[in-house]
C-alpha cells in the first residue's frame, strides 16, 4: 500500500534579520495510513514547522510532499484550506475551542466551511463525533463549563468530525492531569483502527512512547526514526 504522505528534501527557511534560519533542513519521511507516530524533539527542532507544513497551514521553501498520490507542496491558500477542512484534523495543547459556541457547534466548525454545508447535518455529525469521545452528556454546554480533560476530548471530536486522513496532535496532553493524559492518548491511539494516521507532536518522551513509531528531530533534521 502506498504511504499516505511522502516527503522528500523538505526545507523551510526563515529570514531572521540578516540570517537565514533553517527550520527544516532536508527532511525525508513517509507516513503510512493508520499509523500512530510521535514526532519528538525540543523546541526549535523543527517539529512544529513540519506539523504546520504537513497540516497545510504553511508551505515549504523547498522539497516535495505527496499526499494521497497528489503533489501538495505548493498549493494556493484556498486549496490548502480545502485540505484542512476535508483531510486534516488538529488537536492543540490549549484546546482552542471557541468560548461563545456550544460544544457541538465547536465540533461542527470544520464542516461549516465545506461547500454545501447543511447546519442540521453538521450538528448531527458533531453529535456522532461527541459520542465517540464520550461527551454526549455535555451537549449544549460551553467550553468554559468543562474540565481540561473534557475540553480535550471535545477537541478530538472536532478533529475527527470531518473524517480526516490524518490528525495532528500538538502537545495534546500539555495542559492535562495524569489521569486525563492517558485517557486522551488512548483515545487518539484508538483512531488508527479507523485508518486515521495520528501524528503526536511532543517534547515529552513519556508521551511519545505511547506511539508505535517515534521520530526524533533536532535542528531541522530527522535524528532518529524508530518503530517499537
Amino acid at each position: 500500500m502506498p504511504p499516505l504522505i511522502t516527503i522528500r528534501g523538505l526545507r523551510k527557511t526563515y529570514r531572521m534579520g540578516d540570517e537565514n534560519v533553517h527550520a527544516l533542513d532536508g527532511v525525508d519521511l513517509d507516513f503510512q495510513k493508520g499509523e500512530f507516530v510521535a514526532i519528538l524533539g525540543p523546541s526549535g527542532s523543527g517539529k512544529s514547522t513540519l506539523m504546520h507544513i504537513l497540516g497545510f497551514m504553511d508551505t515549504p521553501s523547498e522539497g516535495s510532499i505527496v499526499f494521497d498520490g497528489e503533489e501538495v507542496a505548493r498549493l494556493d491558500p484556498d486549496r490548502r484550506a480545502w485540505y484542512r477542512s476535508h483531510r486534516v484534523g488538529f488537536v492543540f495543547q490549549a484546546f482552542n475551542l471557541l468560548p461563545r459556541l456550544t460544544i457541538e457547534e465547536n465540533v461542527a466548525l470544520p464542516l461549516l466551511y465545506r461547500d454545501g454545508s447543511d447546519p442540521a447535518a453538521n450538528l448531527a455529525a458533531a453529535c456522532a463525533a461527541l459520542e465517540r469521545v464520550g461527551m454526549t452528556h455535555r451537549l449544549g454546554h460551553r467550553p468554559g463549563q468543562l474540565s481540561g480533560g473534557e475540553r480535550q476530548r471535545v477537541a478530538v471530536a472536532r478533529a475527527i468530525v470531518g473524517t480526516p486522513s490524518i490528525i495532528f496532535a500538538d502537545e495534546p496532553t500539555g495542559n492535562l492531569d495524569v489521569k486525563n493524559v492517558d485517557r486522551v492518548l488512548d483515545l487518539l491511539g484508538s483512531l488508527i483502527k479507523e485508518g486515521i494516521t495520528v501524528v503526536l507532536v511532543t517534547h515529552d518522551l513519556s508521551v511519545a512512547e505511547k506511539a508505535r513509531r517515534v521520530i526524533s528531530m533536532r535542528a531541522g533534521l530527522v535524528q532518529e526514526d524508530r518503530v517499537r
Binding site: D78, R84, H86, Y113
Partner: peptide, 12 residues
C-alpha cells in the same frame, strides 16, 4: 487562527 486551522478560507 482556529477557524483557519479547521478549514476556513480567507474569504470565509
Amino acid at each position: 487562527g482556529v477557524r483557519k486551522a479547521v478549514g476556513a478560507r480567507g474569504s470565509d
